[in-house]
Nucleic acid binder design. Structure first.
Length: 493
RNA sequence: GGCGCCGUACCCAAGUGGUAAGGGAGCAGUCUGCAAAACUGCGAUGCAGCGGUUCGAACCCGCUCGGCGCCUCCA
């Protein structure tokens, strides 16, 4: 039974979908005027895991994530670069998919764009004007917050408090400083659509109301996004949507915490952000490995709390992951021993139970990961005592299935650290795996394997001095050799 | 000024009334030609500090100190 922390009520609540076995979930995506940073990645990843977990619980999930593709910042960026807004948004939508794809974040069921929903936006705005909740001034349309008594419910703010703190220039034409634009008349050269109030473009908040209602209906289950969207964005969405439809809007509001750097929020204005592609470019690990490191790192803290980004944190994630992949490597090796086979399923069951309980508890991914660590520890002991090939395969499959919810352990090419080296003279069966887990620079795989062959020949002749020379020279390149009892070796970086 | 969050071992991080999960790093040992991996053992009598409530508190209440977020575009 899944429990969620609902920002609307400030409490953890049992999740009950409107329709049994179905979930409609809307998450605010990004404004596409620049590359995404690791904070965007966290938000995207958290809701990707929400979606995966709901699916693994048997729900049919309709997951909608929008792109804001009309906005002041986009217009500004297009003017700076002397290109069309369309060129800007196309470029960064593609970049979004590239970056998030590297993190294993799945494409949503629907990924609507604001510009594809202008008719819906106009219709929604018209209804608000007709109901007297919005007013028109010189081609602009504003939502009148004073007409909506529930305003402030989500963010737990009162209009009076907001007024006291407001330090923005107040548009004299607005009836209340907190009134916000549903529709903006356009200046020459800006993107514009025809509307009952003249040519213009949508305000920021209305698009999400329009798109969520269009794709999920007037009332739906879950609405998510970063904590910084609670006010004013989500507050305004609620006001517009409920004001217009007279019905409840989203029932559960879920917000993820920030990625920080040195205890401070990562943000563009502070200049302390790292883009996703920058991290991949700087990584000494392959793309696949880097993606999994980031995923592990981002899920190692509960989604609601802050998360401090640092090189050390990534290094720790890599080390933790090494433990799993070292085990997977051993699980791929054949074994005729069966001592532990009978108690294997107990260990697996134990892990399943704690894993599910953790995610049921408001998607507690750190505890879920701890459950997987527990299984790793158990299986290490079992393999030591003797686990058959079948048992090894079974438990690797279990890691695959459970890991899938978090997007971890999905590579069938198990060599996270490096490829397995076949005994001398035997065919190299593992060539398919060579691209995995390899640092982006350094010795090539064939160079390493040649040296390893030479070393194993030396070892066979008890020429340990030469063998150690090779070990040390490979170590200088960051290559670690593991000798197995049968005289063969494997290596990793 | 208003609203809210956080402070748990060297680092990361769960736990929100019943006596401190898990990971990383470190140290010692077993194994190993060496090494790595794995295994075994060690590590907070205490959860920012001080009071209070309770049979019992990291968890509840109050105060203090320190850090942060939102109120303005922001994942």
């Amino acid at each position: 039974m899944l429990k969620l922390f609902n920002t609307l009520t400030g409490r953890q609540e049992v999740f009950e979908p409107i329709e049994p076995n179905k979930v409609g979930m809307y998450v605010c995506g990004v404004t596409v005027y620049d590359y995404c940073h690791i904070g965007h990645a966290r938000s995207a990843l958290v809701f990707d895991v929400f979606r995966r977990y709901l699916e693994s619980c048997g729900y049919a999930v309709t997951f909608v994530k929008n792109f804001t593709d009309v906005d002041d910042k986009i217009i500004k960026r297009a003017q700076e670069q002397g290109v069309s807004c369309d060129a800007v948004t196309t470029k960064y939508i593609r970049a979004y998919h590239e970056d998030m794809g590297k993190l294993g974040i799945r494409v949503a069921t629907e990924e609507p764009k604001a510009t594809e929903h202008i008719a819906d936006i106009i219709q929604l705005t018209e209804r608000l004007v007709a109901k007297g909740l919005a007013y028109v001034v010189d081609g602009d349309v504003y939502f009148e917050v004073a007409k909506y008594p529930e305003y402030g419910r989500l963010s737990k703010r009162r209009l009076e408090d907001l007024q006291a703190g407001a330090r923005v220039d107040v548009d004299e034409r607005k009836r209340h400083p907190m009134d916000f634009a549903l529709w903006k008349s356009s200046k020459p050269g800006e993107p514009a659509w025809q509307s009952p109030w003249g040519p213009g473009r949508p305000g920021w908040h209305i698009e999400c109301s329009a798109m969520s209602i269009r794709h999920l209906g007037e009332t739906f289950d879950i609405h998510g996004g970063g904590m910084d969207l609670i006010f004013p964005h989500h507050e305004n969405e609620i006001a517009q949507s409920c004001g217009s439809t007279g019905k409840d809007f989203a029932r559960y509001w879920v917000h993820n915490g920030f990625v920080q750097v040195n205890q401070e929020k990562m943000s563009k204005s502070l200049g302390n952000f790292f883009t996703i592609r920058e991290i991949f470019e700087k990584s000494e690990w392959s793309e696949e490995v880097t993606g999994e490191i980031l995923r592990y790192f981002l899920l190692s803290t509960h989604y609601h709390g802050p998360l401090d980004f640092s090189d050390q944190a990534l290094k720790e994630a890599k080390n933790a992951l090494n433990g799993f992949y070292d085990l997977f490597g051993r699980l791929a090796e054949p074994s005729g021993e069966t001592e532990s086979d009978q108690i294997l399923s107990q260990a697996i069951d134990r892990c399943r139970v704690t894993f599910k309980a953790a995610l049921d508890d408001d998607l507690n991914t750190p505890v879920a990961i701890a459950a997987l660590q527990g299984l790793r520890s158990d299986v290490n002991k079992l393999t030591e005592k003797g686990l058959s090939s079948e048992g090894r395969k079974k438990v690797r499959q279990e890691f695959h299935v459970l890991g899938n919810v978090l997007g971890l352990f999905q590579s069938d090419k198990w060599q996270f650290g490096g490829p397995f080296v076949a005994p001398i003279g035997q065919a190299r069966e593992t060539d398919v795996a060579l691209s995995v887990g390899v640092k982006q620079s350094g010795l090539s795989d064939s160079e390493i394997e040649d040296l390893l062959r030479e070393r194993n020949e030396a070892r066979g002749k008890k020429h340990f001095k030469r063998a150690d020379e090779i070990r040390h020279s490979l170590a200088a390149h960051g290559i670690i050799i593991e000798d197995k009892p049968d005289g063969t070796s494997r290596w990793k970086r």
